[in-house]
Nucleic acid binder design. Structure first.
Lengths: 195, 195
DNA sequence: GTCTATAGATGGATAGAC
DNA sequence: GTCTATCCATCTATAGAC
C-alpha cells in the first residue's frame, strides 16, 4: 500500500527536533516561537503538535536525548584500569564528544532554568552521573598514589569546566586541529592532578 | 525646597537595575517581562521607561557595568613582576570577584546572544581585554622560563573557564570556605602551567 | 515621576476542514 | 498529517491625566 498523502511522521519528527535545537541554540528557548520552528521545518505551527505535546516537552526531549547520548557513548568506551590512562581517555572523550555537538551542549547548559522542576531534576541526575565517573577516576588515582588531589569532587568539576570551555572558542577552521587541542588540554589536566 | 512628591529618580533607577539583574539571572532575559521588573520595584510598567529607553538598554547597561567593574577592580590591584605571584593574584582575584556577584556573572555569560550586534561587540571587546591580562602573565612566565605553556592564549581560556566554573557549584553554606576553594584552585592552576 | 489605559504585535495552543 | 483560522493571553512601548 502506498503511504497516505502527506504522511511524513517518521521524517518530520526528527526535523522538528533538529530545527528546535538549532533555533534554541541561536536565540534561546524563550525567544524562539513555535511558528519559527515550524517555518524552519516547512510546515504550519499547528502541525508541530503532532510531534510534541508542547514547547516544554520539545526542550526536555532535546536535553534528555543529549544526556542519554553522552552516557551511552561513555559506556561504550573501554575503561582502563590505570588511573592515568582512564583520565586521559576521559579528557579526550569529553573534548571530542562535546566538539561534535556544540548546539546540544550549549542548549543543555543554557536552558536548564527553562525546564520545569521535575524535568530539571531528571537532567541534573544524569549530569551528576557523568561527573561521578570522573570523580571516581580521580579517587582511584589518589588511592593508588598516582594523583595528588585533595578534593576529587571539586577537581572533577574544575576539569569538566575547563574541558567544556573548549567549545566557547574552538573553530574547525582555526589554527589548531582538534587533536592538537586535545593534546594541549590533556597536558594541563595531567599536570594539574599529578602526584 | 522639598522634593516633588513621588520624585525618586535617584533611588528608583538603581532599584530597577537590581530587579532586572535578579530576574534576568533567574528566568532569562527573554522570559522576563517589563511588568515583572516593575512589580519587583513596586511601580507600574510604564514608569520603567523613565529609567531606561527600552529593555535592551537595561540588559546592555547591566553587562557593561559588570565588565567595567571587573576591569576597574583588576586595575586597582598591584601587578607583581614575578609571573608566579601575578598568576596567583589573578587566580584569587578572579575567584573572589566572581563569587561576590554571581548574578552579574551568570547574566553576563548567558545573555550575550540577546545583545544587539553593536552592543555585543562592545562587551566582547571588554571581555577580551580581561583575557589578555592573563595571557600576558602566562607569556611572561614562559619567557622567563617559569612556565611550560605551549599556547598561552588557549591556556588562558582554559584557566578562566576552570575558575569561573566555581560559581556553578560553590555555596557559602557548603563544606568548604572560599579561601579553601581558592587554595585548591590555585594549586591546580599552578601545577597545570608549571615548568 | 507615577499612574491608568491602551495600541499594536506576537505568543502558545486548539478546532475543524481536507 | 497538514492546513487555515482563531482564541486568548501576554508582551513592549506609548499617550495623557494627575
Amino acid at each position: 500500500m502506498a503511504r497516505t498523502q502527506g504522511s511524513h511522521s517518521d521524517i518530520t519528527g526528527p526535523r522538528v527536533r533538529e530545527a528546535a535545537l538549532r533555533l534554541f541554540a541561536q536565540n534561546g528557548y524563550a525567544a524562539v516561537s513555535m511558528r519559527q520552528i515550524a517555518g524552519e521545518v516547512g510546515v504550519q505551527a499547528g502541525a508541530l503538535y503532532n510531534y510534541t505535546p508542547d514547547k516544554q516537552s520539545l526542550l526536555f526531549d532535546l536535553l534528555r536525548g543529549h544526556m542519554d547520548d553522552l552516557l551511552q557513548a561513555r559506556a561504550a568506551c573501554a575503561q582502563p584500569d590505570d588511573p592515568l590512562a582512564a583520565l586521559e581517555q576521559f579528557t579526550r572523550f569529553h573534548i571530542r564528544f562535546h566538539h561534535d555537538r556544540p548546539e546540544a551542549v550549549f542548549v543543555s547548559y543554557m536552558e536548564l532554568r527553562n525546564l520545569t522542576p521535575e524535568n530539571f531534576e531528571i537532567i541534573e541526575g544524569l549530569r551528576r552521573c557523568y561527573e561521578d565517573q570522573l570523580e571516581d577516576i580521580l579517587r582511584r588515582g589518589v588511592t593508588e598514589g598516582r594523583f595528588d588531589v585533595a578534593e576529587p569532587k571539586i577537581a572533577a568539576m574544575a576539569v569538566i569546566a575547563m574541558l567544556t570551555g573548549v567549545n566557547t572558542w574552538f573553530r574547525d577552521e582555526g589554527r589548531l586541529s582538534l587533536p592538537e587541542v586535545e593534546e594541549i588540554y590533556w597536558g594541563m589536566v595531567r599536570k594539574a592532578v599529578a602526584a
